[in-house]
């Protein structure tokens, strides 16, 4: 029998058995993956294809390349929104797995591809779906990519703002020049005084983008607990997640103490301020 007849087609219709044959493994690149990775990639692929957003975001593709032309990331990275869309529309578990290692993180989420796409695809949106899955399954490459974000994740989870002025340290942001950090010698005062010179009290903090009340951050954390975000984060970074839970626990205690302290003021009030228990 001719060897050509035995060659598997690289399609989605390969059964598990077919896909496990050596020739198929070679042609689809799956021999690079460990058996655990193969299993996980199949699972991710299934979840990806069955996400309701897949049907809504991926409509078809003329391969015109306009998305890639307008893409800022494509200009500087080995990345192409067209390729991502092709993988989303016609790819298999291996191509999706490969794309989810690094490429999806090149995307700027600027939505220029969406605005350009003559077919009306939501390319930035489908890339986000891939990213969510890569976080949820705690892929190693994702952990590496997001490693520098521990600080902003902490801020985000605890007070719901990402950038605080004390993150913009001269050491790490030397390329932004002396003015961005409020540390310029011209003014001869510290960054805290520079913050106090902002004419609104809510912004006179260096620890988060603005002062966030304890109730607000507890409400936010409640949302994260209830909507699975905390579980997602646990998959990515269990240590960080435990630390966040501790921080929030402290804030809950702080909140309860304040509740007693301000009992009289709150007594006559209605709405969440009266009912929210932290």
């Amino acid at each position: 029998m001719s060897i050509v007849a035995n060659l598997p087609r690289r399609t989605l219709s390969l059964s598990e058995e077919e896909a496990a044959r050596p020739v198929a493994m070679h042609l689809t690149g799956r021999q690079r993956l460990s058996s655990e990775e193969r299993t996980l990639s199949e699972k991710i692929f299934e979840e990806f294809r069955s996400d309701p957003r897949h049907h809504e975001f991926v409509l078809g593709c003329l391969n015109c390349g306009e998305c890639t032309t307008g893409c800022p990331a494509a200009r500087f990275y080995d990345f192409s929104p067209r390729e991502m869309l092709q993988i989303a529309a016609n790819g298999d578990a291996t191509t999706l797995w490969d794309a989810m290692q690094e490429k999806i993180w090149a995307c700027c989420q600027c939505y220029t591809c969406n605005m350009r796409c003559r077919f009306g695809n939501d390319i930035a949106g489908i890339i986000s779906v891939m990213r969510e899955l890569s976080v949820y399954h705690g892929l190693e490459a994702t952990r590496r990519t997001l490693a520098p974000f521990g600080r902003s994740l902490t801020l985000l989870m605890t007070v719901g703002t990402q950038v605080s002025s004390d993150m913009i340290q001269p050491d790490f942001f030397r390329d932004w020049g002396p003015f961005a950090t409020g540390s310029d010698k011209v003014w001869q005062v510290g960054a805290d005084v520079m913050r106090r010179a902002i004419p609104t009290d809510v912004l006179q903090t260096t620890r988060s983008a603005w002062e966030v009340s304890v109730q607000t951050s507890l409400e936010l954390f409640r949302i994260y607990e209830e909507t699975g975000v905390l579980d997602m984060l646990r998959g990515l970074d269990p240590d960080l997640t435990e630390m966040l839970v501790d921080i929030i626990e402290e804030r809950r205690e702080e909140f309860q103490e304040a509740r007693e302290r301000f009992a009289d003021e709150i007594a006559g009030m209605k709405g969440p301020v009266a009912t929210f228990q932290g």
Partner: peptide, 29 residues
């Protein structure tokens, strides 16, 4: 006010450590 969280979409578009239900709940909050 201090009684506002950000939309948290910076985080979603930057690190994907959120999901549409959470984003919608933050918005609605």
């Amino acid at each position: 006010e201090p009684h506002q969280t950000s939309c948290t979409a910076w985080n979603y578009h930057g690190t994907a450590t959120s999901n549409p239900v959470a984003l919608a709940a933050v918005a609605a909050r």
